[in-house]
C-alpha cells in the first residue's frame, strides 16, 4: 500500500456545513518539504485537517503514503507528526511528561517513549527546560515543545501548521534550522502551512498555493530556483526599446518582468559587460542589476492574480 509520494490528492473536495472549503484539489507531493500557501480562508488548515482524518472528504480522495485518509485514518495518523497552529499544550505536565504522553499515545512503549522524549527535547533545544511545567514555557519554547511532541514517534510526514507564528527573528531562524536539519534525515517529509513566504522559500522544494479552496499553483520551487540561478533582473531609465533592440542584435534577449523591470535569462560571463556597454551607448541608466530572487513571491502573486 505504501507509495513513494508522501501525499496524493485526487479531486479532493471538502464541505463544512454548506460551505465548500476545498474544491477538486489535485496534487502529488513528491518532494521532501512541501509548502502550503494561501490567504486566510483558502483551505490550508482544512487540507491538513483532512489529511489527519479530522474532516471527511465530500468527494475525491487523499492518500498519505498510499493510505486513504477516509478508510484508514489511524494508519495515516501513525505516520504523521502534527504541530498545530494553536497553543495546544496539555497543562499540568512537565515538558518531558507531555512529550512522553504524546509518544505513548502514538504507540511507543512507555519506557521507550520516555527515552525518546528526552532525546527529542534535547534535539529541539529544550533539554534544560524539560522538567518545567509546559504552561510556564515562553511562546518560542511552546513552539519547540510542540515540535518535539510531533517528532517523538519518528513520523514519516511532519505536518507543521504556522510553525513560526509569534516567534522573534532569532527563534524563527533557529526553528527553520531545525526543520532543515530534519530534512537531512532521509526518513522525514515535511509539510509546512504558513503565511510567511520567506519561511516556505527557505525550507521547501515544492509549494502548493490554494485560493478559495482550489489549487492556484503547484510548483517545484527547487527546480525554479535552479533555473533562475543564472538570470538577472534589471531596472532601466531612458530609451529602453532602443537598448533592448541593440542587445537582441548582439544575441542577448531581455524579457519583460513584473514591476516594470526587465529579465535577463542565462547571463553568461561576457553578457554583463556587453549589457553595460550597450547601456552607455544608448544613454540608458541601469538603476538596478541584481540576481533574480523572490521567485516564490512572484509565483504567489501570479497565483493570486495580483502580479503587477
Amino acid at each position: 500500500m505504501e507509495s513513494d509520494a508522501a501525499v496524493l490528492l485526487d479531486g479532493l473536495s471538502v464541505r463544512l456545513g454548506r460551505r465548500p472549503v476545498l474544491d477538486g484539489v489535485t496534487a502529488r507531493f513528491g518532494g521532501r518539504a512541501i509548502g502550503l500557501l494561501g490567504p486566510n480562508g483558502a483551505g490550508k488548515t482544512t487540507l491538513i485537517n483532512t489529511l489527519l482524518g479530522f474532516v471527511r472528504p465530500t468527494s475525491g480522495s487523499a492518500r498519505v503514503f498510499g493510505h486513504d485518509v477516509r478508510r484508514r485514518p489511524s494508519a495515516v495518523r501513525a505516520l504523521c507528526g502534527y504541530m498545530p497552529e494553536t497553543d495546544a499544550i496539555v497543562p499540568g505536565l512537565t515538558g518531558v511528561r507531555f512529550v512522553c504522553l504524546m509518544g505513548e499515545l502514538a504507540g511507543l512503549p512507555a519506557r521507550d517513549a520516555l527515552v525518546r522524549a528526552h532525546d527529542v527535547l534535547h534535539f529541539v533545544g529544550l533539554g534544560e527546560a524539560r522538567y518545567r511545567n509546559v504552561e510556564t514555557y515562553s511562546t518560542g519554547m511552546r513552539q519547540l515543545v510542540k515540535l518535539a511532541q510531533a517528532l517523538v514517534a519518528g513520523p514519516r510526514l511532519l505536518i507543521l501548521d504556522e510553525p513560526t507564528a509569534g516567534l522573534d527573528p532569532r527563534h524563527r531562524a533557529e526553528f527553520l534550522r531545525l526543520v532543515r536539519e530534519l530534512l537531512e534525515v532521509d526518513h522525514v517529509t515535511v509539510l509546512i502551512s504558513s503565511h510567511l513566504l520567506r519561511d516556505v522559500e527557505e525550507v521547501c522544494d515544492q509549494v502548493l498555493i490554494l485560493r478559495d479552496g482550489r489549487v492556484a499553483a503547484f510548483r517545484d520551487v527547487a527546480a525554479e530556483r535552479r533555473a533562475a540561478a543564472g538570470s538577472y533582473d534589471l531596472e532601466l531609465r531612458g530609451p529602453e526599446d532602443e537598448f533592448v533592440r541593440r542587445l537582441a542584435a548582439a544575441g542577448v534577449s531581455l524579457e519583460r518582468a513584473p514591476r516594470g523591470r526587465w529579465r535577463l535569462e542565462e547571463g553568461g560571463p561576457h553578457t554583463i559587460p556587453l549589457l553595460l556597454e550597450t547601456a552607455v551607448a544608448c544613454g540608458v541608466q541601469v538603476r538596478r542589476l541584481e540576481r533574480r530572487r523572490d521567485s516564490l513571491e512572484e509565483i504567489f502573486l501570479q497565483a493570486m492574480g495580483e502580479a503587477p
Partner: peptide, 17 residues
C-alpha cells in the same frame, strides 16, 4: 484542561481514534 488549552487536535492526531 485539554479543552481549555485547545489541545484536542494534538491528542486526536494520534492513532488512538
Amino acid at each position: 484542561d485539554e479543552l481549555a488549552a485547545g489541545a484536542l487536535p494534538l491528542v486526536l492526531a494520534r492513532p488512538i481514534g
